[in-house]
């Protein structure tokens, strides 16, 4: 991208303008995500930077909204924070409950999506797979079909079959939504997969099971893990299906946020947002490390 020495003035000007434009677009991408972090520490119930905050006066900042998050829904939030306070927090805090639901649902949905998705991806990446294109299109469709249609369909289906208001129902729905991501990431890994490795294993006398667990699995594992993380994030971020099919005690974090945004958009919502940004940063880092490891293993990356 470096500018050649012989570039004309016009080209020079354009080149720098271009870089400035790109910088602005990067700002557009990232600023909305970062802006919630300082604002969540606002001491005032406003959504803007107060004067004190701008002067970096410590009294302009506080963790009151994080505190509010913890205590919201607790039976007796005001007593001293001993073991029974924490027990109350664990059992009754609304956000804690939402977090527990999110994790339970996300965990099982991920397991289901990853297991079924990986298996299918192994089949799909075989040359002999019949009707490959058609089947692939069906399997990816939960990502493409508007979520409101999926949620509506599930609402009727679950009401009819008794799955409404059950954890199982939400888990199945979230697994369905996560599956396309698993398929995409795992098949992408398998595209670069050298089939001669499995042949070598087989020719050396390994059983198909041994070959799979000793050769295939370690190589596609990064792809499987990325797929699993995608599936988890999909479930962790999903609100529409939960709105349609979940019972009142199955509120997840996004469902709770949805209420918060519509009704009382206090900086407490920004505190949740900040926590979620931290989580997504961690997930992204994991994914990136995995991707690089996988590229290194396959000799695709400079480092």
């Amino acid at each position: 991208m470096a500018l050649p020495k012989h570039a004309s003035t016009l080209e020079r000007v354009w080149h720098y303008t271009y870089l400035v434009i790109c910088a602005l677009i990067f700002l557009f991408l990232i600023a909305p995500i970062l802006i919630v972090i300082p604002l969540s520490f606002n001491a005032e119930p406003y959504f803007t930077f107060t004067e004190k905050m701008l002067k970096l006066d410590p009294t302009g900042y506080s963790t009151r909204w994080y505190d509010l998050l913890m205590t919201f829904g607790m039976i007796d939030p005001d007593r001293t924070r001993d073991a029974s306070w924490w027990a109350d927090f664990w059992a009754n805090s609304s956000w804690m409950r939402a977090a527990k639901n999110s994790v339970i649902i996300g965990f099982f949905a991920t397991i289901l999506a990853t297991a079924l998705g990986t298996l299918a991806a192994l089949g799909l990446s075989r040359a002999e797979m019949p009707a490959r294109r058609m089947i692939m299109a069906i399997l990816i469709s939960p990502m493409i079909v508007p979520i409101i249609i999926t949620a509506t369909g599930l609402f009727f289906f679950y009401s009819m079959s008794g799955l409404a208001n059950t954890y199982l129902g939400i888990i199945l729905a979230h697994a369905t939504l996560g599956i396309p991501f698993v398929i995409i990431t795992v098949t992408a890994t398998l595209v670069g997969f050298d089939q001669s490795l499995t042949r070598a294993a087989a020719s050396l006398g390994a059983s198909p099971q041994t070959t799979f667990f000793k050769i295939t699995m370690p190589l596609i594992l990064p792809g499987v893990i990325s797929g699993a993380l995608f599936a988890f994030v999909t479930s962790f971020d999903e609100v529409v299906v939960v709105l349609f099919v979940a019972a009142h005690d199955q509120q997840t974090i996004p469902r709770q946020m949805w209420n918060g945004i519509r009704e009382q958009i206090s900086p407490a919502i920004l505190a949740v947002a900040t926590i979620l940004v931290v989580i997504s940063t961690l997930l992204l880092t994991t994914i990136e490390l995995l991707r690089r490891r996988s590229e290194r293993l396959r000799g695709l990356s400079p480092g």
């Binding site: 802006i35 803007t48 971020d237 609100v239 996004p254 945004i261 947002a273 979620l276 940004v277 997504s280």
Partner: peptide, 24 residues
């Protein structure tokens, strides 16, 4: 990628915070 991985609701909230008439 960070926006890509960040919750949809978080990003929507951020825009409310930025754009509302008493917003940033």
């Amino acid at each position: 990628l960070l926006p890509f991985w960040t919750s949809l609701l978080v990003r929507t909230t951020s825009w409310i915070v930025l754009l509302q008439s008493q917003g940033v």
